[in-house]
Design a protein around this nucleic acid. Structure first.
Lengths: 199, 199
DNA sequence: TTTTTTGACATACAATACTATATCAATGAC
DNA sequence: GTCATTGATATAGTATTGTATGTCAAAAAA
């Protein structure tokens, strides 16, 4: 049944995963039913343009029409300049919201100021760097943890757990991020967030 | 009603026209109903991916998925390296067939060899150059004229008419092609046909 | 272990594209 | 003026998507 756009099918799945989104989440963002997403990724449905565009837009992708003559050049551009092993702005934004919530909660906490400050530093660390592709899953889970936490009052015990979990994530990311670069562990000169708009 | 792909809608129409194809012709090539093409170009239908791909493939275009971050770069590439103001390979091929037919007929004609040779030169001129975008319509009509001509025996009168019409087209193209470049009229060093595959 | 999440799949109904065919007004060729 | 082409519509029947839900097993989290 598969037509001739396995191309787009696989690209969708790849993009979705690299965004750390489940089919259900992408469904929520794009408005396309999860069942449809599943079918499309498996080549069992011939989506309409509106659905396609909705899906791709949610993943910061654009459907572009390129003349066959400049196809190789375009594909090369995409390969070389597309974000390599980074987490999306979308997910970052979501994370930022959750982080903001927790940060606010922290200021009203009676832990020692030093501990609170340390946690804030850890969290800011995630905002500053780009999360490696192989850590997006962990990062997503952490964000969800934050979201859940935000729903309830944060006592000493919860704070302890959050601190521990956050520290663990930081360590995992650092280990993943510097396979052979300088193994700095304290406030390293990581490549900063270059918002976007760079051509 | 229009979704968010006026982008693709207008691109289709533009591409089709620049190929010198009518909706019915494109329908024949792509297998998509003429009614559907009309509706799509007017934003009255939400085509399925298979139809879209079929249409664009017929026009030598590919649907590519590009990350929003490298969109400007990609669009720049397309602007600079895509065939500017040329007639499609498709149409060229069609024209070539008709031309071959007529050429064969000409060799069996008892006009003065000189006149026949002149016509052949004119016709070869069209094969050598790239037809400017604003002349595709005229060129298409000329090709159709050839096709019709091919169906019947070519007598002196028909030959005369063909010669006149062909000369007229040549003049129009030359006028259009050199708005301010060298106004050469005899066998000028026009940009040759660079088949394709140039990246 | 128990609970949640995830992706694949099912089912029923509504909405709409697709097919095949035809018509029509406008345009242009002859 | 006559005829062909073109693009826009129309209609009727068919096929498929889209929608709303729900189920289920496997994997992961608690």
């Amino acid at each position: 049944m598969s037509y001739e756009f396995d191309h787009l099918r696989t690209a969708l799945r790849k993009a979705r995963v690299s965004f750390g989104l489940s089919q259900r989440e992408l469904s929520g963002i794009s408005g396309v039913q999860q069942a449809q997403i599943s079918k499309f990724e498996n080549g069992a449905v011939d989506l309409r343009l509106s659905s396609l565009v909705a899906l791709f837009r949610a993943l910061e992708l654009e459907l572009e029409l390129v003349p066959r003559t400049c196809l190789p050049a375009v594909q090369s551009i995409i390969r070389t300049t597309s974000p390599k092993s980074t987490i999306s702005r979308k997910l970052s934004a979501r994370g930022k919201i959750a982080v903001d919530h927790v940060m606010q909660g922290l200021t009203q906490l009676d832990q020692t100021a030093k501990q609170v400050q340390y946690l804030q530093e850890l969290i800011r660390f995630f905002e500053r760097i780009r999360i490696p592709a192989d850590q997006t899953k962990n990062y997503t889970r952490w964000v969800k943890y934050l979201e859940r936490l935000h729903a309830m009052p944060i006592d000493a015990e919860k704070f302890e757990a959050l601190l521990k979990r956050t520290e663990a994530l930081r360590n995992q990311i650092e280990r993943s991020q510097s396979p052979r670069s300088q193994g700095l562990s304290e406030k390293p000169a990581y490549s900063l967030d270059e918002e976007d708009g760079h051509v």
